[in-house]
């Protein structure tokens, strides 16, 4: 019984091999192999894999109001006050509560979610005032209004400067 089965299988495999050897050139095999290799190499280019660990590519000057992350900011730029675009200057405290917007990154054309955390606990920095209001809503819609002093949940509500922290690509 087993022998009959194996014999049939053997005949079938032999038949297929001979047929394909007659019909297909060696180049065909190479081109198929090439497709598989290119396909495998392209998998990291797919959005699934890419979102996981691509470092953010950026252009522009974080001390300029024109910098892409500041599209909805209203305040003094922390990057001119001893901090950076995403960290508070020494002696000031980041507000945990913040307002959130989205800006288009000219380096890759994608929209990113930006958290505008205010730095608090010191007097106003006074340098690099920047007021761009893309997507800003009126005060009757507080979660999306940038005229509010967001220094809440901090030791004092004294406003010093504003940061723009990138939270990730906007997939919505």
């Amino acid at each position: 019984m087993d022998n009959v089965f194996l014999k049939k299988l053997d005949q079938w495999v032999t038949g297929r091999t001979v047929t394909s050897a007659r019909n297909l050139s060696r180049r065909n095999f190479i081109s198929r192999l090439g497709q598989v290799l290119v396909g495998t190499a392209l998998i990291p280019v797919l959005p699934v894999a890419r979102a996981a660990n691509t470092p953010l590519s950026e252009i522009g000057d974080p001390q300029s109001c024109e910098y892409w992350r500041y599209c909805a900011i209203d305040g003094f730029l922390c990057s001119c006050c001893g901090g950076t675009a995403s960290t508070c200057p020494p002696g000031s405290e980041p507000s945990p509560v913040t307002w959130v917007g989205t800006c288009e990154n000219p380096a890759d054309g994608k929209r990113y979610i930006i958290s505008y955390n205010d730095c608090c606990g010191k007097g106003g920095c006074g340098r690099c005032f920047c007021n761009r209001n893309e997507g800003d809503k009126p005060a009757y819609y507080p979660p999306k209004n940038n005229d509010i002093n967001w220094c809440v949940g901090t030791k004092t509500n004294a406003y010093h400067c504003s940061t723009a922290v990138v939270m990730g690509v906007d997939e919505s």
Partner: peptide
């Protein structure tokens, strides 16, 4: 794969844009 990632990532983006500001 494009549509799958989009559908999965959608609520998280909405959380970050509309909730994270106060709820962290």
């Amino acid at each position: 794969s494009f549509f799958l990632t989009d559908a999965e990532a959608d609520p998280r983006s909405h959380y970050l844009i509309h909730c994270m500001g106060c709820h962290l």
